[in-house]
């Protein structure tokens, strides 16, 4: 809802994303802040920022697939892994530039995701969740059991640093800028997708696929497209991850990681791109806090043992998912929207 006094007088104006002067200003300020952050942030903060930005790409993809199109996807980490392996292998074996490998990684993950999108045409709900878990197992199994000359087997793939015009992108700061540019493009793209005819079709299918079909939407194609787009984002995220860590191994993309991405969109709010970004920020921050505080607790209370970080992470993650599903199933973004509309229409009750 717009603040009082702002009325759209044309269709163009009505479908704008950024609607008021203040929104333009704050958005520009936020992007400028992101680009200037390395000037004053410590290396550790930048390292955390890198992981957050990559998670943001993957979580936004999941948000389109699960939050907008309503297709439960517990295999997002496997799709990310397909992208990471594609980029890693293309870069290490064929010395391709990252400008080429990152989109190709997205496309290969999208193809893998599309396969599972096709199953979504026949089944839904719980059965679909099972199929996407199967994607996770198939990914794991094929990487470990295919000949190790193909995908490195359990040894993983060592990825060379990305280079642009002869400059090696190997420092944290340089990687930060590379990842930030991709993230900004992809997130802007996501905002575009969800307000296009595709996005409206996704929402219609999520709310009721039979009704959507009656309105003339091709439900099968829409579901498959949702998986395609979601997996593309995951693949790009995976490629960026490969260039950041410079090593790709199958243990980086487990069911546990998929559940992490789901937790992010649940906390942030289903069906909101901004919500996905907020969820990424909150979950990663708390994860970072547990990783920092955990060892200290383990030292102070020795009988708990060194496993406390992993155990604490598990309990936190499971607890957060269950708690939000029970108490705030629409996520933080929903709460914020209620606050926003109440101050915008103030002093009127509705």
């Amino acid at each position: 809802m717009d603040p009082s006094g702002i009325f759209s007088t044309s269709y163009r104006q009505d479908r704008r994303l950024v609607r008021t002067k203040w929104q333009v200003l704050t958005l520009l300020a936020f992007i400028a802040l992101l680009f200037l952050a390395p000037l004053f942030a410590s290396p550790r903060v930048i390292a955390i920022g890198n992981v957050m930005l990559i998670s943001a790409v993957v979580a936004v993809g999941l948000q389109i697939c699960t939050g907008y199109a309503g297709q439960i996807n517990l295999g997002q980490a496997a799709f990310m892994g397909v992208g990471a392996y594609t980029a890693g292998l293309l870069a290490s074996k064929y010395q391709m530039s990252f400008l080429l490998t990152v989109p190709l990684a997205g496309l290969s993950a999208a193809a893998f995701g599309f396969l599972f999108g096709l199953t979504a045409v026949r089944i839904k709900g719980f059965y679909l969740a099972l199929t996407t878990i199967a994607a996770q197992f198939i990914f794991h199994f094929s990487v470990l059991n295919l000949p190790s000359s193909w995908m490195g087997g359990s040894n993983g793939v060592i990825v060379p640093a990305a280079t642009l015009f002869g400059y090696r992108i190997s420092t944290e700061t340089a990687q930060y800028y590379m990842i930030l540019v991709f993230t900004v493009i992809l997130v802007a793209g996501a905002f575009g997708i969800v307000r296009s005819r595709f996005g409206r079709a996704f929402i219609a299918v999520r709310d009721d696929d039979v009704a959507a079909g009656i309105m003339g939407i091709n439900v099968a194609r829409t579901k498959a497209t949702a998986f395609l787009i979601g997996a593309f984002y995951a693949g790009v995220g995976g490629a960026l991850w490969a260039y950041l860590i410079r090593f790709v191994g199958v243990d980086q993309f487990t069911l546990f990681n998929s559940i992490f991405f789901i937790a992010m969109i649940i906390v942030g709010g289903m069906g909101s791109i901004t919500g996905a970004l907020i969820g990424v920020f909150i979950i990663r921050m708390i994860q970072e806090i547990i990783a920092t505080v955990g060892p200290n607790i383990a030292e102070a209370v020795p009988f708990l043992g060194g496993e406390i970080v992993f155990a604490g992470m598990n309990m936190f993650l499971g607890g957060v998912i269950a708690l939000f599903m029970i108490l705030e199933p629409k996520g933080l973004m929903h709460r914020w929207n209620i606050i926003k509309s109440s101050y915008r229409i103030w002093p009127f009750p509705y």
Binding site: I72, F256, A263, G312, N314, L317, G318, G319, I321, A322
Partner: peptide, 26 residues
């Protein structure tokens, strides 16, 4: 969660899976 959507149910038991794993470990 009585009467909630399939998605909520699936996600709560997935949360339970992770939670119990951490709980048993702890």
């Amino acid at each position: 969660l009585i009467g909630e959507s399939v998605f909520s149910m699936v996600m709560v038991t997935v949360g339970l899976l992770i939670f119990l794993r951490g709980f048993i470990l702890l």
